[in-house]
Amino acid sequence: MSIRYVLGRLLFFFVVVWAGITLIFFLPRLAPGRDPVRERLGMMAAMGGMNAENVERLAQAYEAKFGLDLPLWQQYLNYMSDIARFNLGYSLAKFPTRVIDIIGPALPWTISLLTVATVLAFLLGSLLGGLIAWDGAPPILRFLLPPLFTFSAIPYYLLGLILIYLFAFKLKWFPLTGGSQILTMPSVSFSYLLELIYHSILPALSIVLASIGFWALSMRGMMITVEGEDYVTLAEAKGLPSGRVFLWYAMRNALLPQTTALALSLGTILSGSLLVEIMFGYPGIGSALFIAITGFDYFVIYGIVFMIVVTIALATLILDLIYPLLDPRIRYQEN
């Protein structure tokens, strides 16, 4: 892998994160004549209570960094330097909890659900799509196309709503809400793990079901193109077993554009799974965002949006760095 390629991808990572921070900073300030954070702080100070003194200090700190007397670029620099140190501020609704302490515990839930569901859907969907396009596969697979097609058109969380209604509300096979029983203390035990899995089956299923069709359909498209390539014809002419031709000549090449598509869809996938969390009351970033929006908790909203941008940029970077291992043409390009 050439150094130039790696540096290029790293640069892209930082530009994406920078663009995200910049948008988070400027977009709210475009709203004419009002700063929702200042309004909110004013409201909190007016309400008084136990934390009045702390709120006062928070408001002062905010004025010092983002006060109206400061030029915009100064505020922007202050913001950048805060973010660079992962200083995301305090929750306005649950003051004096720090934003990072709200995001931190939620992150593992989101990442584990998202990763497992996406990897599963991508692999199964690609395999299925490849088989549907392959002449040697059982023709019965073609009957899967209409349901796959239908599922892929439904947003994850709406499918989730249907699953909740059927399997949690009607049949009572799965819990209606939550990531674990309310009264269970987290522990490193097999029974706790089982409980986690039990609670995550429906949310995961709604992501997998809704996205498997997308991957299957796009893989089918790629395979139809790849099957027409001369190297697949030659592989067949060589007398290789059809399994070998399918996996290592056709699928292997069709997976390249498929991986690019995965990198491009990461944002949509993440957004969709955040909404799934909300439907299921699953204690991840999505639910935290929902609570923050309901409570006008701006620092938490901005903090979560920042984390979302960083997560996507990081996942994109990882995929970009894996890609040359799949495609030798990129690996040797600069050498």
Binding site: F12, L266, V309
Partner: peptide, 23 residues
Amino acid sequence: RSIADVGLTVPALAVLVVIASVI
């Protein structure tokens, strides 16, 4: 191309949340 690529990577929903939460 660069602007579009960066813009495609930043999830639209995240940006929309920031705007919509203000107004």
